[in-house]
């Protein structure tokens, strides 16, 4: 690969990283897992003046579960580490369902969840998962830290609300207030392919009824789609077939896919409908079995 000329820095402290970005006056880029950035450099779609490599920053490679059940995932936690996390497998079904189908094993060993959310690819997986879970991103900049809900963080194709030279240092999934359930399905033509269409669902139950719901869709819009109305349709339901169909209908309505070589817009909408239905039917079956 022959990218354009760029400088490279590998700071050892977060403040130093922010400072390096600041000096680059908007032309700097943060390198974490590099699984999206490096291809962009190769194709010269991105030509930053400096790459600020944060891989040597200490203490960003964690996956922590708090005593209340909240997750904190550092900017250097790799997909593969999340895939192998017992806490994720045990406590966070939406993320656990998504992570094995994020890209391919090679990408998963380097790429990061936080980087993926920042990259804001409309066909990416993690932004959908995080929106479905009411997740947030923590940004660090000259003004200090701030937390931004992922649904407000991702604003368009490859666009987020980070205010340069802020660096996203953490993603968080809030503590659940009920019993957690969820799922993730995506259609891809091959392992590692971008999603033709995909759906992430995160639910909480209280006394057998849905007390929190999040549904987000990937591959079916200019940005990750937050299917709020579909999620709302599930509230207080026990995932009866009417509620499930209503949610699937509303999720399909919320998506705005484009026809391309992966399929027609109608087909993608149909896949969203099918996947939302399948995830919810699966959860309902699990609930019945548990009861």
């Amino acid at each position: 690969m022959f990218p354009g000329r760029f400088h490279y820095a590998s700071p050892r402290a977060l403040d130093e990283a922010v400072e390096l970005l600041q000096k680059a006056e908007g032309e700097g880029k943060v390198l974490a897992g590099g699984q999206s950035l490096i291809p962009l450099l190769k194709l010269r779609f991105a030509s930053p003046s400096i790459l600020v490599d944060i891989n040597n920053l200490p203490g960003l490679d964690y996956i922590k579960v708090e005593s209340d059940g909240a997750f904190r995932i550092g900017a250097l936690a790799r997909h593969g580490e999340i895939e192998r996390s017992d806490d994720i497998a045990r406590l966070q079904p939406t993320a656990a369902a998504a992570v094995p189908v994020v890209a391919d094993p090679i990408v998963r060993s380097r790429g990061t969840l936080v980087g993926s959310v920042c990259h804001a690819d409309p066909q990416g997986d993690w932004a959908a998962v995080m929106i479905a879970l009411d997740g947030s991103v923590t940004a660090y900049g000259p003004e200090g830290k701030r937390s931004i809900m992922v649904k407000d963080f991702v604003t368009g194709p490859f666009q987020n609300v980070l205010s340069y030279p802020e660096i996203a240092i953490e993603a968080t999934i809030p503590a659940p207030k009920g019993d957690v359930a969820g799922g993730f399905l995506k259609l891809e033509r091959r392992v590692g392919d971008f999603a033709t269409a995909g759906a992430a669902i995160g639910l909480e139950f209280n006394a057998g009824r849905v007390s929190r719901a999040g549904i987000a869709l990937t591959g079916v819009g200019g940005a990750t789609v937050n299917a709020e109305a579909a999620a709302e349709a599930l509230m207080n339901s026990s995932l009866g077939s009417d509620a499930v169909m209503r949610a699937a209908d509303l999720a399909a309505e919320a998506s705005s896919p484009k026809s391309d070589h992966r399929g027609s817009a109608d087909y993608k909408r149909h896949i969203v409908h099918t996947f939302v239905r399948r995830i919810l039917a699966g959860i309902a079956t699990d609930q019945e079995r548990a009861a």
């Binding site: 194709l43 391919d104 091959r190 392992v191 392919d193 070589h261």
Partner: peptide, 15 residues
């Protein structure tokens, strides 16, 4: 369309 490995697909051992 099919000018790179994002669009031109080679099967993996998985599928």
């Amino acid at each position: 369309i099919g000018s790179n490995f994002m669009d031109y697909l080679l099967p993996t051992a998985w599928e």
